[in-house]
């Protein structure tokens, strides 16, 4: 791909990713509602919400908290562009982590006890899922001999067959990343928890809208990574991403929110057993 093509693709991604993410959020809300035998909002409700947020007054505790949110947003856009233009998966993961760190910093900066505790919990969650994400990248490297997303995607091998443990582990990460029960302890969608909305409690108006859009980017990137396990068969990748998405909604609706100790233990045990185990198998049976 020529640099010009890459740049064009990047622009397409920057525009299309949040639309896809927003639609997914809409489907999420509609499906969750149906699972709870409610009607649920219209499919485009997330977009309406964001439009409304943009029109609202931005009230801040400290002006500098918004500064971090802008960085969070920019890095999230960068992550999406990097991933979908087929860049380095390690760089993508680091950009994603950096973006999350900026959100945590913003929450710390807001100096509200709710967002403070939310930020602490978010750090714990990052500790919980980060090993698994890195292991997934390592696993993909072991099979395809490359860290570049394009190469991984073009590999004729169905990664999920070689890395089933990693794939399952990655689904757990997805639950955390999409802020779903049982791992929604840092910030839940419904603000029905002891720390209100946790990490995003103190953001409002345009800043909150940016966080929301950044979250859409995040959703598309992590679902894209999950689809990467099936990249050899594009139709299967799409189906798999859909199934994973549905599974996450189901999990969201059949679990209570766990406490941080259990969240950490679950993620690490999954990473250790499924992730490391899978990698060892791939490494020695190659």
């Amino acid at each position: 791909m020529s640099p010009l093509d890459t740049a064009l693709l990047a622009i397409v991604v920057v525009v299309a990713a949040p639309i896809a993410g927003g639609l997914l959020a809409g489907i999420d809300r509609k499906l969750s509602a149906r699972m709870q035998s409610r009607w649920g909002p219209p499919l485009l409700q997330p977009f309406y919400d964001v439009r409304k947020l943009f029109r609202k007054e931005t009230i801040v505790v400290r002006r500098s908290q918004n500064f971090y949110v802008y960085f969070f947003f920019v890095f999230m856009v960068f992550t999406a562009a990097l991933f979908f233009t087929g860049g380095d998966i390690l760089l993508t993961i680091f950009a994603l982590t950096l973006a999350s760190i900026f959100l945590v910093l913003a929450a710390y900066k807001a100096s509200s006890p709710y967002s403070f505790i939310g930020a602490e919990r978010e750090l714990i969650l990052m500790m919980a899922y980060e090993p698994m994400v890195l292991l997934a990248a390592v696993g993909m490297y072991l099979v395809t001999r490359s860290f570049i997303v394009v190469d991984i995607a073009r590999s004729p091998q169905l990664l999920a067959l070689r890395l089933p443990g990693l794939f399952i582990g990655f689904v757990v990460v997805l639950v955390v990343k999409m802020r779903k029960s049982p791992f929604d302890l840092a910030a839940s969608h419904h603000a029905h928890q002891e720390i209100v909305r946790g990490i995003t409690t103190e953001f409002s108006g345009r800043t909150l809208a940016l966080i929301e859009i950044a979250h859409w980017y995040e959703t598309t990137v992590v679902l894209g990574m999950a689809a990467l396990f099936f990249a050899a068969l594009p139709w299967l990748a799409a189906v798999a991403a859909g199934c994973v998405f549905f599974l996450i909604l189901l999990v969201d609706n059949v679990f209570a929110r766990v406490k941080w100790q259990v969240a950490l233990a679950t993620a690490w045990i999954t990473a250790a057993a499924l992730g490391v185990g899978n990698i060892l198998v791939v490494f020695f049976l190659r």
Binding site: S181, D184, H190, D252, N253, V254
Partner: peptide
């Protein structure tokens, strides 16, 4: 109670 421990569908089911 279900809402308090973050189990939304259980909450809705009870109310139903």
């Amino acid at each position: 109670m279900a809402d308090a421990f973050g189990f939304e569908s259980l909450f809705m089911q009870s109310f139903r």
